[in-house]
Simulated scan of single mutants.
Amino acid sequence: MDANPTLDQLQVFIVVAETGSFSAAARALNRAQSVVSYTIGNLEAQLEVQLFERSGARQPKLTDAGRAMLVDARRIVADLQVMRSRAKTIKRGLETELSLAISVMVPTDALVAELSEFRREFPSVALNLNVGELGRVMDLVVSGKADIAIGGALLKQDDSIVADRIGHAFMLPVAAPDHPLAQMGRPLTLADVREETQLVVTDSSGMTSGRDFNVLSFKIWRVSDVATKHHLVKGGLGWGGLPASLVRDDVRDGNLVVLELDAYEQGEYPLYALRRAANPPGPAGQWLIESFARRLSTCPSKAHFDATLKVDGERQAYPQAAE
């Protein structure tokens, strides 16, 4: 078996290349110049390539092969430093990887802001992110595919799951401006919406099978996800409820109209941090829960959103959620 270069040999090689001479490298490494030269000679013998051009020059100069090997040497040393850092975090109890499930009800602005902070706080922790609808978020925690979830309340009693309320959101019934319901120009009754197509998201987890939330129309189109529903509603293919944070800009810009429909329940939708009781979060997971709690607890209330509907002008202005 061929002898592999050692980490020490690669580090000496890098220092010689960066300082430009064996003597400067020896001073930087606090070693005898003969030891540095011997180390580089052994490395060249193991790799079977000449790394430095020594003849006819006062200072060693990297050969073409040396320049190529320098790139590899720096990458290997950097990878080993990452390995050492990860080992230190493991020793301290910090997670090496975290799986997070996020409900579509969590404002996108809040998600991006929190994950940006998370990356700065825990650069060595790998993150797996899943965004889901309805029961999908809880299902990911129950199945062990997510360490933590930020989403709605438990859809069924499960003593193995810990649920801590950390904030709220809510849905708004909306339609495109040229939709018949938006053109009525008055508060809508249940009879008004019965014959209009309502777009409804189907829960892929099966946890809400047989249960419909705020389904008022006789004509129903079922879609797999909120993003598709959003596009179809904007395209005038039906009406439906969408997260207020998702439609805020569309309503402000006149691309969607909020329907005045008392029959549609618009109460606050609680948001919880969900996890398995047998799997308490480590430092990174706990930080993430507490950080989301601080941000989501500042989301505007339903009353605040309702007040903005009364703003004078052609466009309805909504405050940015979870800033």
Rank of each mutant, 00 (worst) to 15 (best):
R315A: 15
R248Y: 03
F305D: 00
D192M: 05
F170M: 08
A87Y: 08
A227V: 12
D64A: 05
G238R: 10
E53Q: 13
H231W: 06
N4Q: 15
H168F: 15
E97M: 08
K61M: 12
F122W: 14
D312K: 10
R84I: 08
A303Q: 14
M69N: 09
A169H: 11
S205V: 06
A307P: 07
Q286T: 13
I90S: 12
V137P: 00
N130M: 09
L62N: 02
R86V: 14
L256C: 00
R86N: 12
V125I: 07
S143K: 01
G132N: 04
L274I: 06
I150L: 02
V137A: 00
S85F: 05
I166T: 09
Q33M: 03
A24F: 07
A163M: 05
G313K: 05
K91E: 14
T6G: 08
S143C: 02
V193L: 12
L256M: 06
R31Y: 11
E265N: 15
R315W: 11
L155Y: 14
F170Q: 04
G144E: 04
S34F: 08
Q183G: 02
A273G: 04
K234M: 05
Q33S: 09
A113T: 13
E117Y: 00
D139W: 04
I166S: 07
E195A: 04
A87W: 08
L261T: 01
V257F: 01
G238A: 12
V106S: 08
A278K: 10
G254W: 11
V131E: 09
K310E: 11
F118S: 11
N128Y: 05
G66A: 05
L127F: 11
G93T: 02
G144H: 07
A73S: 04
V35I: 07
A68S: 12
P319V: 02
A110V: 04
L154A: 02
D147G: 03
V16C: 10
V125Q: 05
R75P: 05
G41V: 02
I90N: 07
L43N: 09
L190C: 09
K234D: 06
D2T: 13
A307V: 06
A65I: 13
N4K: 15
C299Y: 09
R165E: 14
E97Y: 01
I150E: 01
A277H: 11
G240I: 04
A278W: 06
F170R: 03
S224G: 11
L274K: 08
F218A: 11
H168P: 05
W239P: 08
M138P: 02
D262R: 13
Q320G: 00
S204N: 06
G132F: 01
V223L: 15
G152C: 08
Q50E: 06
